[in-house]
Amino acid sequence: MKITRTMEISVGFFVSLGLAALLMLALKVANLTSFGTTDGYRILARFDNIGGLQERSAVKMGGVLVGRVTRIDYDSDSYRAVVEMKIDPRFREIPVDTAASIYTAGLLGEQYVNLDPGGDEEVLAEGSELEITQSAIIMERMLQEFLYSKTAKDENS
Protein backbone atom coordinates (compact mmCIF):
# COMPACT_ATOMS: atom_id res chain seq x y z
CA MET A 1 0.00 0.00 0.00
CA LYS A 2 1.37 3.35 -0.97
CA ILE A 3 1.44 5.79 1.92
CA THR A 4 -0.22 9.03 0.95
CA ARG A 5 -0.25 12.32 2.78
CA THR A 6 -3.96 11.91 3.49
CA MET A 7 -3.24 8.60 5.17
CA GLU A 8 -0.54 10.09 7.36
CA ILE A 9 -2.81 12.95 8.36
CA SER A 10 -5.76 10.69 9.12
CA VAL A 11 -3.64 8.33 11.22
CA GLY A 12 -2.29 11.31 13.14
CA PHE A 13 -5.83 12.56 13.62
CA PHE A 14 -6.96 9.11 14.78
CA VAL A 15 -4.20 8.80 17.37
CA SER A 16 -4.82 12.29 18.76
CA LEU A 17 -8.55 11.64 18.87
CA GLY A 18 -7.90 8.49 20.91
CA LEU A 19 -5.61 10.32 23.31
CA ALA A 20 -8.09 13.18 23.61
CA ALA A 21 -10.76 10.62 24.50
CA LEU A 22 -8.51 9.17 27.22
CA LEU A 23 -7.85 12.66 28.53
CA MET A 24 -11.55 13.38 28.62
CA LEU A 25 -12.22 10.13 30.48
CA ALA A 26 -9.49 10.93 32.98
CA LEU A 27 -10.43 14.56 33.59
CA LYS A 28 -14.13 14.80 33.03
CA VAL A 29 -15.27 11.31 34.05
CA ALA A 30 -12.82 10.33 36.79
CA ASN A 31 -12.02 13.92 37.78
CA LEU A 32 -8.28 13.44 37.95
CA THR A 33 -7.73 17.15 38.59
CA SER A 34 -9.38 17.39 42.02
CA PHE A 35 -7.44 14.68 43.84
CA GLY A 36 -4.27 13.05 42.85
CA THR A 37 -3.34 10.16 45.07
CA THR A 38 -0.15 11.89 46.19
CA ASP A 39 -1.49 15.37 46.86
CA GLY A 40 -2.97 16.55 50.14
CA TYR A 41 -2.39 15.87 53.82
CA ARG A 42 -3.63 13.01 55.94
CA ILE A 43 -5.76 13.31 59.05
CA LEU A 44 -7.17 10.64 61.37
CA ALA A 45 -10.44 10.16 63.19
CA ARG A 46 -11.70 7.39 65.49
CA PHE A 47 -15.31 6.25 65.41
CA ASP A 48 -17.26 3.74 67.50
CA ASN A 49 -19.01 2.56 64.38
CA ILE A 50 -18.38 3.56 60.79
CA GLY A 51 -21.44 1.86 59.28
CA GLY A 52 -21.02 1.45 55.53
CA LEU A 53 -18.08 3.82 55.08
CA GLN A 54 -15.52 2.57 52.57
CA GLU A 55 -12.17 3.52 51.20
CA ARG A 56 -12.59 6.28 48.62
CA SER A 57 -15.74 7.51 50.36
CA ALA A 58 -16.13 11.27 50.23
CA VAL A 59 -15.08 13.72 52.94
CA LYS A 60 -17.25 16.82 52.85
CA MET A 61 -17.31 20.14 54.60
CA GLY A 62 -20.49 22.14 54.31
CA GLY A 63 -21.46 19.77 51.51
CA VAL A 64 -18.29 20.50 49.52
CA LEU A 65 -15.99 17.61 48.63
CA VAL A 66 -12.69 18.34 50.40
CA GLY A 67 -11.08 14.91 50.50
CA ARG A 68 -11.44 11.16 50.49
CA VAL A 69 -11.15 8.27 52.90
CA THR A 70 -7.85 6.54 52.15
CA ARG A 71 -7.67 3.78 54.75
CA ILE A 72 -9.93 2.12 57.30
CA ASP A 73 -8.48 0.15 60.20
CA TYR A 74 -9.52 -1.21 63.58
CA ASP A 75 -7.64 -0.15 66.69
CA SER A 76 -7.84 -3.11 69.09
CA ASP A 77 -6.55 -1.03 72.04
CA SER A 78 -9.37 1.47 72.04
CA TYR A 79 -11.86 -0.85 70.32
CA ARG A 80 -12.65 1.81 67.78
CA ALA A 81 -12.43 2.13 63.99
CA VAL A 82 -9.63 4.33 62.67
CA VAL A 83 -10.39 6.26 59.50
CA GLU A 84 -7.58 7.89 57.60
CA MET A 85 -8.55 10.69 55.23
CA LYS A 86 -6.64 12.66 52.67
CA ILE A 87 -7.62 16.31 52.46
CA ASP A 88 -7.07 18.41 49.37
CA PRO A 89 -4.23 20.93 49.98
CA ARG A 90 -6.55 23.74 48.89
CA PHE A 91 -8.35 23.31 52.22
CA ARG A 92 -5.46 24.08 54.54
CA GLU A 93 -7.29 26.11 57.17
CA ILE A 94 -9.39 23.55 59.06
CA PRO A 95 -9.47 24.18 62.85
CA VAL A 96 -8.23 21.39 65.15
CA ASP A 97 -11.49 21.27 67.11
CA THR A 98 -13.42 20.29 64.00
CA ALA A 99 -16.00 17.51 64.54
CA ALA A 100 -16.22 14.51 62.21
CA SER A 101 -19.47 12.64 61.76
CA ILE A 102 -20.59 9.92 59.38
CA TYR A 103 -23.68 10.88 57.42
CA THR A 104 -25.74 9.20 54.75
CA ALA A 105 -26.41 10.94 51.46
CA GLY A 106 -30.17 10.81 51.07
CA LEU A 107 -32.21 8.01 52.57
CA LEU A 108 -30.48 5.12 50.79
CA GLY A 109 -27.35 6.82 49.52
CA GLU A 110 -23.68 6.30 50.23
CA GLN A 111 -22.10 7.20 53.53
CA TYR A 112 -19.55 9.96 53.83
CA VAL A 113 -17.56 11.79 56.46
CA ASN A 114 -18.82 15.26 57.27
CA LEU A 115 -16.53 17.80 58.91
CA ASP A 116 -18.08 20.53 61.10
CA PRO A 117 -15.44 23.25 61.58
CA GLY A 118 -14.83 24.47 65.14
CA GLY A 119 -13.48 27.85 66.26
CA ASP A 120 -9.88 27.15 67.26
CA GLU A 121 -7.03 29.28 65.92
CA GLU A 122 -4.82 26.27 65.37
CA VAL A 123 -5.37 24.35 62.08
CA LEU A 124 -5.06 20.68 61.16
CA ALA A 125 -1.73 19.44 59.83
CA GLU A 126 -0.38 16.19 58.40
CA GLY A 127 -1.24 13.31 60.74
CA SER A 128 -3.51 15.29 63.11
CA GLU A 129 -6.34 13.45 64.80
CA LEU A 130 -9.87 14.77 65.14
CA GLU A 131 -11.01 14.41 68.74
CA ILE A 132 -14.74 15.00 68.39
CA THR A 133 -16.42 12.29 66.37
CA GLN A 134 -19.92 10.99 65.90
CA SER A 135 -20.56 7.49 64.63
CA ALA A 136 -22.72 6.42 61.78
CA ILE A 137 -26.40 6.14 62.45
CA ILE A 138 -27.35 2.49 62.30
CA MET A 139 -30.91 2.01 61.20
CA GLU A 140 -31.54 -1.16 63.28
CA ARG A 141 -30.28 0.44 66.47
CA MET A 142 -32.43 3.48 65.93
CA LEU A 143 -35.50 1.31 65.45
CA GLN A 144 -34.61 -0.68 68.55
CA GLU A 145 -34.23 2.44 70.67
CA PHE A 146 -37.46 3.83 69.31
CA LEU A 147 -39.40 0.65 70.12
CA TYR A 148 -37.76 0.39 73.58
CA SER A 149 -38.64 3.97 74.53
CA LYS A 150 -42.18 3.43 73.25
CA THR A 151 -42.73 0.28 75.40
CA ALA A 152 -41.14 2.04 78.43
CA LYS A 153 -43.53 4.94 77.97
CA ASP A 154 -46.50 2.56 77.66
CA GLU A 155 -45.52 0.77 80.91
CA ASN A 156 -45.18 4.09 82.77
CA SER A 157 -48.58 5.35 81.83
Binding site: F14, V15, L17, G18, L19, A20, A21, L22, M24, L25, K28, V29
Partner: peptide, 13 residues
Amino acid sequence: MPLLAMIFTAIGV
Protein backbone atom coordinates in the same frame (compact mmCIF):
# COMPACT_ATOMS: atom_id res chain seq x y z
CA MET B 1 -7.96 -1.29 19.51
CA PRO B 2 -7.28 0.68 22.75
CA LEU B 3 -7.59 3.97 20.87
CA LEU B 4 -10.92 2.87 19.40
CA ALA B 5 -12.17 1.71 22.82
CA MET B 6 -11.28 5.07 24.36
CA ILE B 7 -13.05 6.92 21.58
CA PHE B 8 -16.08 4.63 21.88
CA THR B 9 -16.28 5.15 25.66
CA ALA B 10 -15.83 8.91 25.51
CA ILE B 11 -18.44 9.30 22.77
CA GLY B 12 -20.73 6.96 24.71
CA VAL B 13 -20.48 9.12 27.85
